[in-house]
Design a protein around this nucleic acid. Structure first.
Lengths: 151, 151
DNA sequence: CCGATTTCAGGATCACTGATATCT
DNA sequence: CAGATATCAGTGGTCCTGAAATCG
């Protein structure tokens, strides 16, 4: 036998932390490729979706709800205003805050991105049955819930 | 009702691509914190483990086996040689290649990292039963297998 | 000449730290 | 004064492109 470590189990293929990271990398690549065709990235979608569902919000609130780092929100909102998809205005009731509002163009972009992401999910989950997809959702949700928000 | 989109389902919490990415981010942070206490990062572990299990290899072979990008292998091997954990020597049989070999210090570091990563996996998977951990492993393996290697 | 290997230079996104100015 | 908000500057890791030099 020339095996350098006879009988040793393969480490990498069994590392759950590694499997998670590999699956996420592949998923992220599909997401980025799809969103790039619409001149967007994942934080754009997170902001547009949050505004559509929960209404206008301050940048701090958007950071909380989307998971975008506090210091990175500015750049994302800058990009979205440049594209005319959100509007930034000072909040007269609390002049520390800005009020971010979804525009009509932002709403159109959101429904566009919704379609793109639905297709990506189908492609990502192609090897899984409907039941397995639900299992995966529950397991990942349990992990994320248990390990709280990162900020 | 003041809901801006009454009856609309929450998008973000149900996006599987997002759940994956969030779970991986949390997992990666645990891994990085643990490895940092041993002056290592995840690619160090991947190289050390591969060398221990499969013996000396060229940098191209290590790229294939670990998933490190071809152009990033150099830096990782540089760091590991600086730490005395691997040895880099030209291959006399094919002078295009280097032969990377695990040192005694590298072997010690590997068994150290093995312990750290086992603890991280326990912490990461804490909210899951043994059966659920197996389920997760199978589901993620199916995804990664189906979507092939990224390089 | 073609192909493989190593190496370098650089880009884009992301997670994260820390500091500052402004306002409550 | 303490605390919150928005902003800016910058680090480091990861993923990825492209190109050069060397060798089979």
């Amino acid at each position: 036998v020339t095996d350098p470590t006879p009988g040793a189990a393969a480490r990498l293929p069994n590392l759950r932390t590694r499997l998670l990271s590999m699956a996420a990398t592949r998923s992220d690549r599909l997401v980025n490729e799809a969103l790039a065709t619409a001149d967007a990235r994942k934080w754009h979608y997170a902001v547009l979706a949050t505004l559509a569902e929960q209404g206008p919000a301050s940048q701090a609130a958007l950071s909380e709800r989307t998971g975008i780092y506090r210091s990175d929100v500015v750049a994302v909102i800058n990009e979205l205003t440049t594209r005319g998809q959100v509007d930034r205005a000072p909040n007269p009731a609390d002049r520390r805050q800005n009020v971010i509002t979804l525009t009509a163009a932002g709403r159109r972009q959101l429904s566009n991105l919704d379609k793109l992401l639905a297709a990506v999910e189908d492609e990502l989950l192609a090897p899984l049955t409907a039941q397995q997809r639900d299992q995966l959702t529950r397991l990942l949700t349990a992990l994320v819930t248990h390990h709280g928000q990162p900020m």
